[in-house]
């Protein structure tokens, strides 16, 4: 029955899937902009408190989604500092929560990758007097396969997350209902077919992401670019 639902092209089902992808991909895009930038900056520069920043990002990789949801809720609620924006219970709030959740993952993992490669290139770059910004660009480009894998890991975390989007999105039908929150709701209602159908799609997305990551890694290794 769940497979039939997926195959039937059910409008509600695909609306939920569409919103899930929209929210998580937007959050991923924002996280990559912020996370790759921060990760690269920490990797190639030396400043007081750098070690603390690395520990902080590494620690935040395991941020509990419900805590992130709670903090974003407090910030966006009517009496919160960003309450005037009126973003609570909108997809934008869910994007903010997921961005906060996965940016530390993207930043911490990309920092490690970029730092390893930068250390490898360091003497060459200094010998050639490569300007810092150009060096950062070159390292990011050469590490692109590994960084795409990082992005996919971030996407995997975002798309499967339920606690934060439930709190700040409210799981409102046709507005903020995504796959994970819908699965939780339909299960509690006893509509296991829809819950299972969404679960199948979620698993398929997760498997696709993992297959892509693996394929990228092996392609990069085969071509000696990794």
């Amino acid at each position: 029955m769940a497979f039939a639902l997926v195959a039937s092209g059910d409008g509600d089902l695909y609306e939920i899937i569409g919103l899930s992808l929209q929210v998580s991909l937007t959050a991923l895009f924002a996280s990559c902009i912020i996370g790759f930038g921060l990760g690269t900056l920490i990797a190639v520069t030396r400043f007081p408190g750098r070690g603390v920043a690395i520990i902080a990002f590494n620690t935040m990789m395991g941020l509990p989604p419900v805590v992130v949801g709670l903090l974003v809720y407090l910030a966006l609620s009517r009496s919160g500092p960003l309450g005037v924006l009126g973003l609570l219970y909108t997809p934008a709030a869910m994007i903010i929560a997921q961005t906060i959740l996965i940016t530390p993952i993207v930043a911490a993992l990309s920092r490690q990758i970029v730092e390893d490669l930068f250390n490898e290139y360091d003497e060459l770059f200094r010998s050639l007097s490569v300007p810092t910004l150009q060096a950062m660009g070159a390292v990011l480009w050469d590490a692109r396969f590994s960084l795409i894998t990082v992005a996919l890991a971030g996407f995997g975390r975002a798309i499967a997350e339920v606690g934060a989007v439930m709190i700040v999105g409210g799981n409102i039908d046709h507005l903020t209902r995504v796959m994970t929150t819908a699965i939780a709701l339909e299960t509690s209602k006893g509509d296991l077919a829809l819950a299972l159908a969404l679960g199948i799609v979620l698993l398929a997305i997760s498997m696709t992401v993992n297959a892509l990551a693996l394929s990228l890694r092996s392609t990069a290794a085969r071509q000696a670019y990794a």
Partner: peptide, 29 residues
Amino acid sequence: VRQRQALVFQKPVLLRRSVGDNIDFVLRL
């Protein structure tokens, strides 16, 4: 002064790119 010199390392440090792109990187620089 360093820009007017070049150093070849004992263990080659090559960019993770093609042979041609390794040269292009320096020419562009």
